[in-house]
Protein backbone atom coordinates (compact mmCIF):
# COMPACT_ATOMS: atom_id res chain seq x y z
CA UNK A 1 0.00 0.00 0.00
CA UNK A 2 1.26 3.46 -0.93
CA UNK A 3 0.52 6.50 1.19
CA UNK A 4 1.27 10.20 1.18
CA UNK A 5 2.77 11.91 4.22
CA UNK A 6 2.45 15.68 4.39
CA UNK A 7 4.24 17.87 6.89
CA UNK A 8 3.34 21.51 7.42
CA UNK A 9 4.57 24.08 9.93
CA UNK A 10 7.35 26.48 10.90
CA UNK A 11 10.76 25.53 9.51
CA UNK A 12 13.29 24.31 12.08
CA UNK A 13 16.29 22.01 12.36
CA UNK A 14 15.69 18.27 12.47
CA UNK A 15 12.21 17.85 10.98
CA UNK A 16 13.34 15.49 8.21
CA UNK A 17 15.63 13.59 10.56
CA UNK A 18 12.88 12.96 13.08
CA UNK A 19 10.37 11.78 10.49
CA UNK A 20 12.81 9.64 8.52
CA UNK A 21 14.02 7.99 11.72
CA UNK A 22 10.49 7.09 12.71
CA UNK A 23 9.80 5.67 9.24
CA UNK A 24 13.07 3.70 9.14
CA UNK A 25 12.45 2.24 12.59
CA UNK A 26 9.14 0.89 11.34
CA UNK A 27 10.46 -0.38 8.03
CA UNK A 28 8.55 2.13 5.90
CA UNK A 29 10.19 2.74 2.53
CA UNK A 30 10.34 6.30 1.18
CA UNK A 31 9.59 6.50 -2.55
CA UNK A 32 9.70 10.22 -3.19
CA UNK A 33 10.18 13.46 -1.29
CA UNK A 34 9.53 17.06 -2.28
CA UNK A 35 10.05 19.91 0.07
CA UNK A 36 9.69 23.69 -0.14
CA UNK A 37 10.07 26.56 2.27
CA UNK A 38 7.90 29.60 1.68
CA UNK A 39 8.35 32.54 4.09
CA UNK A 40 9.80 30.18 6.72
CA UNK A 41 6.78 27.90 6.36
CA UNK A 42 7.92 24.33 5.85
CA UNK A 43 6.00 22.09 3.46
CA UNK A 44 6.97 18.55 2.70
CA UNK A 45 5.20 15.88 0.70
CA UNK A 46 6.49 12.32 0.88
CA UNK A 47 5.29 9.20 -0.92
CA UNK A 48 5.91 6.00 1.05
CA UNK A 49 5.44 2.27 0.59
CA UNK A 50 3.86 0.52 3.56
CA UNK A 51 3.95 -3.04 2.22
CA UNK A 52 6.74 -4.07 4.63
CA UNK A 53 5.77 -1.68 7.42
CA UNK A 54 5.69 -2.98 10.97
CA UNK A 55 2.76 -0.73 11.76
CA UNK A 56 -0.66 -0.54 10.10
CA UNK A 57 -1.49 2.79 8.49
CA UNK A 58 -3.75 3.59 11.44
CA UNK A 59 -0.96 2.95 13.94
CA UNK A 60 1.54 4.86 11.84
CA UNK A 61 -0.86 7.78 11.76
CA UNK A 62 -0.94 7.77 15.55
CA UNK A 63 2.87 7.65 15.76
CA UNK A 64 3.27 10.49 13.25
CA UNK A 65 0.70 12.62 15.03
CA UNK A 66 2.50 12.13 18.34
CA UNK A 67 5.78 13.04 16.69
CA UNK A 68 4.15 16.08 15.04
CA UNK A 69 2.85 17.29 18.39
CA UNK A 70 6.30 16.93 19.97
CA UNK A 71 8.10 18.93 17.25
CA UNK A 72 5.27 21.41 16.66
CA UNK A 73 4.42 20.33 13.11
CA UNK A 74 1.21 19.11 11.52
CA UNK A 75 1.90 15.65 10.09
CA UNK A 76 -0.66 13.60 8.16
CA UNK A 77 -0.60 10.27 6.44
CA UNK A 78 -3.27 9.32 3.93
CA UNK A 79 -3.65 6.50 1.45
CA UNK A 80 -2.58 7.55 -2.02
CA UNK A 81 -5.89 6.51 -3.59
CA UNK A 82 -7.56 9.57 -2.07
CA UNK A 83 -5.38 11.92 -4.08
CA UNK A 84 -5.60 9.78 -7.21
CA UNK A 85 -9.39 9.84 -7.00
CA UNK A 86 -9.47 13.58 -6.71
CA UNK A 87 -6.86 14.52 -9.31
CA UNK A 88 -6.76 11.71 -11.89
CA UNK A 89 -9.59 10.63 -14.16
Amino acid sequence: MHAIITVLGQDKVGIMAAICTLLAENNVNILDISQTILQSSFTMVMAVDLSASRLSIGELRGALETLGASIGMSIRIQREELFDAMHRV
Binding site: I4, R76, E80, L82, F83, H87
Partner: peptide, 16 residues
Amino acid sequence: MLNQKEILSTIEMIAQ
Protein backbone atom coordinates in the same frame (compact mmCIF):
# COMPACT_ATOMS: atom_id res chain seq x y z
CA MET B 1 2.83 10.78 -10.30
CA LEU B 2 0.90 13.25 -8.17
CA ASN B 3 2.45 16.63 -7.83
CA GLN B 4 2.88 18.62 -4.66
CA LYS B 5 0.32 21.24 -5.65
CA GLU B 6 -2.42 18.64 -6.11
CA ILE B 7 -1.63 16.96 -2.82
CA LEU B 8 -1.60 20.23 -0.92
CA SER B 9 -4.87 21.35 -2.51
CA THR B 10 -6.52 18.19 -1.16
CA ILE B 11 -5.03 18.78 2.28
CA GLU B 12 -6.29 22.36 2.21
CA MET B 13 -9.81 21.22 1.25
CA ILE B 14 -9.92 18.86 4.23
CA ALA B 15 -8.10 21.01 6.78
CA GLN B 16 -9.47 24.45 5.96
